[in-house]
Design a binder for these strands. Structure first.
Length: 491
RNA sequence: CGGGGUGUAGCGUAGCCCGGUAUCGCGCCACGUUUGGGACGUGGAGGCCGUCAGUUCGAAUCUGGCCACCCCGACCA
C-alpha cells in the first residue's frame, strides 16, 4: 500500500532507513553521524525510559548524574578499558574561540589550550569510580546502586540511525559491592531486568548468555548479554551487563573496611541499554507498510478517525468519538482523535499505519446510526465492526492480544531461524542462505574465533546461560569442544 | 584512512558526452468539487545547478582545486 518505503525483500537496510525517516522517528543532522530524534521517535524512547526506570527503582536503584567530560588521565588508569575505547573518543582541547584576525569568521583561540584534555564520555566507569572513592569507607557504605540516564559519544566510522550513531542516549548502571558474589548476582539480576523488559514490553524474544573473552566489555571479567534476532537473520545485541571484578576499584583505589576490619577493594558491575533498542524494535516487528509497535510501548495506542461529508455529520461523529475516547482513557488507554479536516480518511489510515499505532477506530455516519465502529489492527491488518457497548473492554483485550501476537510472531521467527551446524560446510551454508543463530562447536580459543570472523563475518554472539555441556569437535579446527556456542552475523 | 560513486527547488530526478540561463514527478500555496484505504480539476510560488578559480562572446554542461555526502573495507552499544 505504501509507495514510500522500499520493501524488505527488495533491500532490507534501505527499508529500515526509509521507515525511520518516513515514520518520522529520526533524521540525519547537520553533524556527521549524529541524528535528530524527532518527537515521534522520542516519545517511544520516553516510554522505554519510563518502563526501565521503574524496573530499576523496583530493584533498589537510584538515579544520579555524572559529568559529560572526563579528564584524559582517568582513561589510562584501567589498561584494557583505555585500549577498548581509545580509538573512538572525542577530545576537548580548547575552551575558547575568537574572531579570526584575517576576518574569516571564528577560530579556536590557541591561547585557550587546556592543561589536560577532556574526553567526551564514551561510557562513565572512570569518572564514576573516581567519584566512588570518596563515597566508600566502610562495608556499611555498600552497596551503591546508581543508574545514570545520559548521552555518550563514540566516534564510529560508519553510522546508521539508532543502530550506531556518534552520539547516543542510554542508561548506564554502576554498582559497587562488598563481595564478588554480590556483584555477580547484581549483574545477573540486571540481565534479567533487561530480558523481562525486552520480552514483556518490547515484545522482542532474546537469547541470554555471556560473551567470550574477545567480545567482552573493555575492563570486564564477565559480560552478560541479551541477543535479539532481526527479520533479516542478523543478530543485534540488545543489552549488556558486566561483572567488572575489582578492576576499577583497583584502578581508582576504591577500598572499604570489612566487618573483619580488613581493607578490601570494592566489587563492581555496570549495565546499559541504549537508543539502539529503537533499531531492535523497528527491525523486529515492522513491515512494508511501516512501523508496528507493541501496545505497551506505543505513545498512542488507539487513533480514532472520523468519516464525514459535511459539518453536520462531523459533529454527529465527533460526539460519539469523544465519548469513546473518554471511556478508553478511563481504562488507561492512550487515544488520539484525529479530526483534522486537512487530510482525508484514507490518507490518515496510511499515515497511522506508517507510524505504528496499534489500533485504529473509524467512525462514520453509518456507524452512528448502527451504534458500531470499525476497528482495525495494525499487526494483522484485520478489520472488524464492533458494537459500541463495552467497546473499551474489547479494545483493552485487543491491545493485549496485539502485544501477545507480536511477541509470539517474533519468537516463532527466532525459533525457526535457530540452527545447529556440525560441519564447516553446513555452517557456511546456513550463514549465506538462511541467516539466524547457529549453535556450533568451538574450541574455545580467541584465535579460532577471530579466524571464523575473518572468513565469514560471523561472531560468537554468546554462550547461552542455560547451555548444555556436550562434547564435540570445533567446526573450524576440529579440536575438541565441550559445548556449542551461538554464532551469527550481527549489527 | 584505503577503494568506488554522487552533488541541479523541501524530496526524488532529466539535461552534461555534443556550451546558448533548467525537465518531470512528489510535496507546498489558492479556489472549487471531494471525504468508509494515501482524491480530482484549474491556477500559482519556489532553483545565483555544492564551492572557488580557469577556458569562452557565453558554463549546470569543458578543465583544475576545494568542500560535502553516500556505498564497500578496517572500528563498533
Amino acid at each position: 500500500m505504501s509507495d514510500q518505503i522500499t520493501s524488505r525483500s527488495e533491500n532490507y537496510s534501505q527499508w529500515y532507513q526509509d521507515l525511520v525517516v518516513k515514520a518520522d522517528l529520526a533524521e540525519n543532522s547537520a553533524v556527521r553521524g549524529c541524528m535528530v530524534i524527532k518527537p515521534n521517535g522520542y516519545a517511544i524512547w520516553e516510554k522505554m525510559q519510563q518502563h526501565l526506570d521503574k524496573m530499576f527503582k523496583d530493584t533498589g536503584h537510584v538515579n544520579a548524574y555524572f559529568p559529560l567530560f572526563i579528564p584524559k588521565s582517568f582513561f589510562s588508569k584501567e589498561a584494557s578499558h583505555v585500549e577498548g575505547f581509545a580509538k573512538e573518543c572525542a577530545v576537548v582541547t580548547h575552551y575558547r574561540l575568537k574572531n579570526d584576525p584575517n576576518g574569516k569568521g571564528i577560530i579556536v583561540d590557541e591561547d585557550a589550550k587546556l592543561e589536560e584534555e577532556l574526553i567526551v564520555r564514551p561510557t562513565s566507569e572512570t569518572i564514576i569510580w573516581n567519584t566512588y572513592r570518596g563515597w566508600v569507607q566502610s562495608y556499611r557504605d555498600l552497596p551503591i546502586l546508581v543508574n545514570q540516564w545520559a548521552n555518550v559519544v563514540r566516534w564510529e566510522m560508519r553510522t546508521r540511525l539508532f543502530l550506531r550513531t556518534t552520539e547516543f542516549l542510554w542508561q548506564e548502571g554502576h554498582t559497587a559491592h562488598a563481595t564478588s558474589q554480590e556483584a555477580i548476582e547484581e549483574a545477573q539480576k540486571m540481565l534479567e531486568v533487561y530480558t523481562t523488559f525486552s520480552e514483556d514490553i518490547l515484545a522482542i524474544p532474546v537469547l541470554k548468555g555471556t560473551k567470550t573473552a574477545n567480545e567482552r566489555f573493555a575492563g570486564a571479567l564477565d559480560t552478560y548479554c541479551i541477543e535479539a534476532l532481526m527479520q533479516d537473520g542478523k543478530a543485534l545485541q540488545a543489552g549488556t551487563s558486566h561483572f567488572l571484578g575489582q578492576n576499577f576499584a583497583k584502578a581508582f583505589d576504591v577500598k572499604f573496611t570489612s566487618k573483619e576490619g580488613k581493607q578490601e577493594f570494592v566489587w563492581a558491575t555496570s549495565w546499559g541499554v541504549s537508543t539502539r533498542l529503537m533499531g531492535a524494535l523497528i527491525m523486529s516487528h515492522s513491515d512494508d507498510d511501516g512501523l508496528v509497535l507493541p501496545p505497551r510501548l506505543a505513545p498512542i495506542q488507539v487513533v480514532i478517525v472520523p468519516i464525514y461529508k459535511n459539518e453536520e455529520q462531523l459533529n454527529l461523529v465527533s460526539e460519539q468519538a469523544l465519548k469513546i475516547k473518554k471511556a478508553l482513557e478511563a481504562k488507561g488507554v492512550s487515544v488520539k482523535f484525529d479530526s483534522r479536516d486537512t487530510h482525508k480518511p484514507g490518507w490518515k489510515f496510511a499515515e497511522y499505519e506508517l507510524k505504528g499505532v496499534p489500533i485504529r477506530i473509524a467512525i462514520g455516519p453509518r456507524d452512528v446510526e448502527n451504534g458500531t465502529v470499525e476497528v482495525a489492527r495494525r499487526d494483522t491488518k484485520e478489520k472488524n465492526i464492533y458494537q459500541i457497548i463495552d467497546l473499551e473492554i474489547k479494545i483493552e483485550h485487543i491491545l493485549n492480544q496485539i502485544q501477545d501476537n507480536i511477541f509470539k510472531k517474533a519468537q516463532a521467527r527466532l525459533e525457526a531461524s535457530t540452527y545447529h551446524a556440525d560441519s564447516w560446510e553446513e555452517f557456511i551454508d546456513i550463514l549465506d542462505n538462511k541467516g539466524g543463530f547457529i549453535y556450533a562447536h568451538w574450541d574455545g580459543t580467541t584465535e579460532t574465533e577471530l579466524k571464523i570472523k575473518e572468513e565469514t563475518k560471523a561472531t560468537i554472539r554468546c554462550i547461552p546461560l542455560d547451555n548444555k555441556l556436550e562434547e564435540g569437535k570445533c567446526i573450524f579446527t576440529g579440536n575438541p569442544s565441550i559445548q556449542r556456542v551461538v554464532f551469527a552475523r550481527a549489527y
